[in-house]
């Protein structure tokens, strides 16, 4: 991937990420998140991880976030708009973030392997789906099934916590 494209998409992704948090209008926040996901998908594609890039667009940007957007619009959330920023919390958050970024930059500058270009990977054979499937269902089967139980628990929890009246 050409470095210019990487920097453009990475910067856009971060900018939209900030916009998710800063925007007080939930619809604008959700749309910014979709844009951020699309830029992330572009980064994946740039790393030759086509399958993950496509999944990122289809599942996250497409299915999950659009559904989320529908829900926000249906619920017509407006309360957030009226709220003001808490200056102290904002300053504290900015301080922690700045410290973290400074630490990250310092570590990256001291980390020799972080300064060298990574040796190019072999040419992708475009059978990502098969590769991911094979890995997931053979080597990573036990964690995969654990995640299955996790999803079950999450869906049971959502129903328990969101039904108006439990029967």
């Amino acid at each position: 991937m050409s470095p210019i494209l990487f920097w453009i998409f990475a910067a856009l992704m971060l900018a939209f990420g900030v916009s998710v948090v800063v925007n007080r209008d939930p619809v604008a926040s959700a749309l910014s998140l979709v844009a951020s996901f699309l830029c992330l998908a572009a980064l994946f594609v740039g790393l030759d991880a086509f399958f993950i890039g496509v999944i990122q667009v289809l599942v996250y940007a497409g299915a999950v976030m659009v559904l989320f957007l529908f829900i926000i619009m249906l619920l017509d959330l407006k309360a957030e708009k009226r709220r003001h920023f808490n200056k102290l919390a904002l300053a504290g958050g900015a301080l922690v973030t700045a410290g973290f970024v400074a630490g990250l930059v310092r570590v990256l500058s001291l980390y020799p392997a972080g300064n060298q270009p990574f040796p190019p990977l072999g040419v992708a054979k475009l059978d990502d789906v098969r590769q991911v499937g094979m890995t997931l269902f053979s080597n990573f089967n036990l964690p995969f099934q654990t995640v299955g139980v996790l999803v079950l628990v999450a869906s049971v929890g959502v129903i328990v916590l969101s039904r108006r009246e439990l029967k």
Binding site: V147, L150, V153, A154, G157
Partner: peptide
Amino acid sequence: ELVTISFYV
């Protein structure tokens, strides 16, 4: 995460 998510609920 399985532990944590069940705790959230």
